[in-house]
């Protein structure tokens, strides 16, 4: 069997609450193979977003390992972690989180400025935007785009540096059902075309149904399928 793209081993996350410590994640382990789309489900407060943050390198586990693309990231220094995030992880959020002052094209270019991506940033970003069907909205600002379009810009931004892993936290949470379905269609096709590995958190069964498999998180621990 090939080396998994993502390997999460015994990840524990505790946070202080007053004089006590509360457990957010209680020893989570799983692997993601290349090209796999995995849905992470669970009730609010079960630790989904925390787990995604740790996997994305935005947060550090209290203990445990996260190996992404062959590199243990949970103990990388901040400087290297930032660079690693830019090149190895694409993130899509429920609230789109586009920079309101930048156009769609400029938003998509953002990660390229960090990675010092060789070549023509604008052309590459434009190509990715065209891939997600927004070739005609290149110079529009977020406030001039619909929710579905904003989320597609967010997807384009997540993919522009060709990361091996795409993480999506409730990507359809702010979209109507039609736009949500369109977005999932887009993610599925991108996975198929680019061999992208996707880990997405959702409450939506229809979204989860499009995944190869579903991980269920309850009280910080993975339950059976």
């Amino acid at each position: 069997m090939t080396e998994p793209t993502l390997s999460v081993r015994d990840v524990i996350k505790e946070l202080p609450l007053g004089s006590e410590r509360i457990s957010i994640l209680g020893g989570v382990s799983f692997d993601l193979q290349a090209g796999e789309m995995v849905a992470l489900m669970g009730p609010s407060g079960s630790g989904k977003s925390t787990l995604l943050g740790i996997v994305a390198g935005l947060d550090r586990p209290t203990s445990g390992d996260v190996i992404l693309d062959g590199l243990e990231i949970s103990r990388l220094p901040e400087r290297r972690l930032a660079a690693f995030r830019a090149s190895h992880v694409g993130m899509v959020f429920q609230a789109y989180n586009l920079i309101p002052t930048l156009t769609a094209l400029e938003n998509v270019q953002l990660p390229l400025f960090v990675t010092n991506h060789n070549g023509h940033h604008a052309e590459h970003a434009q190509h990715v935007l065209e891939t997600v069907g927004l070739g005609h909205r290149l110079h529009h600002r977020p406030s001039q785009l619909s929710g579905g379009e904003q989320q597609r810009v967010a997807v384009a931004r997540a993919l522009v540096s060709a990361p091996p892993l795409l993480i999506a936290d409730e990507p359809t949470g702010n979209l109507d059902s039609e736009s949500g379905a369109a977005l999932m269609e887009l993610l599925s096709s991108l996975r198929a075309e680019l061999g992208l590995t996707i880990l997405l958190a959702t409450h939506n069964d229809a979204v989860a149904a499009r995944a190869n498999r579903v991980l269920r998180l309850r009280d910080g621990k993975l339950a059976g399928p």
């Binding site: 935005l58 690693f84 995030r85 993130m91 989180n97 920079i99 990660p111 960090v114």
Partner: peptide, 16 residues
Amino acid sequence: RREIALFKSVGFRNRS
């Protein structure tokens, strides 16, 4: 806050 966090999430460092 979110904007700053977003810059950081795509790889910009505190200094940038």
